[in-house]
Design a binder for these strands. Structure first.
Length: 463
RNA sequence: GGCAGAUUUCCCGAGUGGCCAAAGGGGGCUGACUGUAAAUCAGCUAGCAUCGCUUUCAUUGGUUCGAAUCCAAUAUCUGCCA
């Protein structure tokens, strides 16, 4: 594959890990400290723009009053192709976008796929992905790939397990210890890393920055995320500070290990590494995290953590102001239409989210007029497509009545058809946003899209 | 024809005098889902309504302060014996 002809990865413009006052600082290895500046665009690179990672800002979004906003278009170049941003990245946690063939994922317009290091480490094992030639080859996805680090699972299997935290009963001062009675937390954090108890068979597994990087290197995605700790909104500020500092130390360890692993391999893989910004709802913490990680030689950044919908734009804006302008910003886990517009105008370049496929498996489909559940009896004899004028494979071939029938009959193809439509809906929405930035019509697109989507009215087609 | 056993709210199925409008499944209806422990989860599922009231456990008639639960007759079904 293309991989074998690539040169070693070298990230960022700063050439090394900054010194800090932390007692837990790790020493940057000589190979990393002495790393050349960002390989992709230098004259030293024999394969510029083809085999390496880079990011170019395109058109900048301007506000209604003519001032420049934080939003922009851009191009992320990876060894497996370009990603035109803003872009929605399809989530394929276990090396599959659930219920959708990779070919269909490509057909519906997705530019890249994001898998999960923790899940693939448990099953089938990252060594299998490595032996297969990497994630893309393994799953027959020729385009760019991402892997998440397993950081999200620190929260979802630990303190944030499902809905175990009773919002009413929470004092919000309990640190990371608030798990509902009778529920077992499957992840426990310490300074060095996290103990996970496998949800598959109860095995204990250790994850740390170094282990996550090792796993992600073997999986071989084009873009990896640093191993972070994701807190919840219920954690106290004191815990948020403590966690954020830990995530900063982990970020540095990820970079060191990433450089080490890259040097170790022959041929050298070319994988990019994104740092992940935490800090919950606190402006000072978010800005500090951006400054801290922004100085490290990451190729880009993820904006993660617990985000209240109302603060999403504000938080993304803080991050975009602080983070290096010339590096891509990925907003983790967002896909609702209003959130997408808000995030784009506040500087987010890429997104990923499980929502389009997860809700599809529970019969919910997106339309220009909102999201509705196809399981409703009103769709029983509705022979229109999920959405009139939709260009997706599902809508050009099948009716609501048919897919409703499949869902009620528990036929798995309903998951496939709705997932294709929902992924297309979000991917194409972000695509249109990108085009609108280029043509100066972003505000109009936002107003017309959200005006129709959030009417609060019942599905007009279905009645 | 004789003997024995059954009949519960859409379905299956608990319940054998008051705590029963009646467990638990299934089905149905509605809703939720934002870096996937998710083909998951939650609520509702006799009627009307604010506590509460009204109809309901094959049918009819009894016993009792009180019956899905006890008695009798009838109907239907299932075994076994002729």
């Amino acid at each position: 594959m293309a991989r074998s002809s690539q040169r070693p990865a070298r990230m960022g413009q700063n050439g090394g890990v900054p010194e800090t006052d932390s007692p837990l600082d790790v020493t940057t290895p000589a190979s990393a400290t002495g790393a050349p500046s960002s390989a992709p665009s230098t004259a030293m690179d024999p394969h510029p723009r083809q085999t390496a990672f880079s990011f170019e800002v395109g058109t900048r979004l301007t506000n209604a009053d003519g001032s420049r906003s934080l939003g922009r278009t851009g191009t992320i170049r990876t060894p497996h192709g370009d990603i035109h941003t803003p872009a929605f990245i399809a989530v394929g946690t276990k090396a599959t976008v659930k219920a959708v063939l990779p070919e269909a994922v490509a057909d519906l317009g997705a530019q890249a796929v994001l898998a999960n290091a923790y899940h693939l480490y448990l099953q089938p094992g990252s060594d299998i992905l490595d032996a297969a030639g990497g994630l893309g080859t393994f799953m027959n996805w020729p385009g760019p790939t991402f892997t998440d680090s397993g950081g999200f699972q620190v929260m979802s299997l630990g303190s944030g397990f499902k809905k175990v935290i009773d919002m009413q009963g929470s004092t919000a001062e309990g640190g990371d210890d608030q798990v509902a009675p009778g529920k077992e937390r499957l992840a426990n954090v310490d300074e060095d890393g996290v103990w996970f108890k496998s949800h598959l068979n109860g095995d204990r597994h250790r994850f740390s920055p170094e282990i996550s990087m090792g796993v992600q290197h073997r999986i071989g995605a084009d873009i990896m995320f640093a191993f972070d700790e994701l807190t919840t909104l219920h954690n106290s500020r004191g815990y948020q500070v403590e966690s954020l500092e830990r995530t900063r130390r982990w970020a540095k360890r990820c970079i060191v290990e990433h450089f080490r692993l890259t040097d170790e391999r022959d041929p050298k893989p070319y994988q990019a590494l994104f740092g992940v910004i935490q800090g919950a709802q606190y402006e000072d913490l978010r800005r500090k995290a951006c400054r801290d990680l922004g100085e490290m030689p990451f190729d880009g950044f993820g904006i993660g953590g617990a985000l209240e919908k109302e603060n999403l734009g504000t938080i993304v804006g803080w991050c975009s102001e602080e983070l290096p302008e010339d590096k891509p910003r990925h907003l983790l886990g967002i896909s609702e239409p209003d959130d997408i517009f808000t995030a784009i105008e506040n500087g987010a370049d890429t997104f990923d989210c499980v929502s389009p496929t997860r809700v599809a498996r529970n019969s919910a489909f997106y339309t220009a007029n909102g999201r509705f559940n196809l399981s409703g009896r009103r769709y029983r004899a509705d022979f229109t497509p999920l959405q009139e004028d939709c260009g997706c494979y599902t809508c050009t071939h099948y009716s609501r009545a048919y897919i409703h029938h499949l869902y009620k009959a528990k036929e798995l193809v309903s998951h496939t058809l709705i997932s294709i439509h929902n992924e297309y809906f979000v991917v194409s929405l972000v695509d249109r946003a990108r085009q609108a930035i280029e043509t100066g019509t972003f505000a109009e697109l936002k107003a017309s899209t959200l005006g129709a989507y959030y009417t609060g009215a019942p599905d007009p087609q279905g009645l």
